[in-house]
Amino acid sequence: MIAVLKHELRSYFHSFTAYVFGAFLLAIVGVGSMLYNLQAAVSNFEYVLSFGSIVFVVIVPILTMRVIAEERRQKTDQLLYSLPITTTQVILGKFAALLVVYLIPLAVISVYPAIFAQFGDVYLPTSYGSLFAIFLMGAALIALRVFISSLTDNQGLAAGVGIAVILFNYYSVSLSEYVSSTAFGSMVAIIVLILILYFVIRYLTKNEVLAYGVCFVLAAVVCVVGWTDSSKFEGLLPRIMKTLSLFERFSAFVSGVFDMTAIVYYLSVAAFFLFLSVQSLEKRRYN
């Protein structure tokens, strides 16, 4: 794992990736703190982080688009398989390297509140709580993107799908206001989601029966529950969209709440997608 970590770090710093990523993040946070903290003289640094969080939509895909897709394209994945290291070590090494690249600009940013505190009243616990939360949120997004990158050998596609997924996640709370909150609407949406799940399972496992079986059971459950007690589906879709939003949970920290459930949520999302990435790499051994 250490070997993969060192190798990845070397390649990030030999190419522009790490610098572009860092520059973007520092620029947007810099602009944010100039607007909020300096010009408007607001002492809350967390507002800057909240303002800057949209930049993740763009920079995380840039950082991670080549992580596994590039190995596929160059056929170096065969080297990784034949080396005496496990796929888990490969994924963890790559993830750790991404975290290091991500932590460097964050370390620079973490100095800002301390500087501002010299010139006024800054409530540091909220500032650093939010900074910690945005680190975890970024880690979860990176893990999600590692997984997307592991699905294809096309960097462009990996980056595009990544931007779309993160953008949808970013706006899902605002969108949830507009989607149907009736029981019927939610039911239809969930059936559509099950259909999508069917194609995903079929693509990943190439097993028609498994995909069909899982989705048939899920659809049956939805229909039975909907038929017996349709109130269960009242407002379900907006609720799901809010729950899944990584960005929404960050807003709690900005309001000054150190939300433990959000911390656990970020960590589970990261672990979940890293697990899927390992499976996705392992799957390549089977075809």
């Binding site: 030999h14 190419s15 056929k75 080297l79």
Partner: peptide, 14 residues
């Protein structure tokens, strides 16, 4: 085992 696949698995920009 040391393995050289048909297409050498090289990182081109190293």
């Amino acid at each position: 085992i040391g393995y050289l696949p048909e297409q050498p698995p090289l990182y081109m920009n190293e």
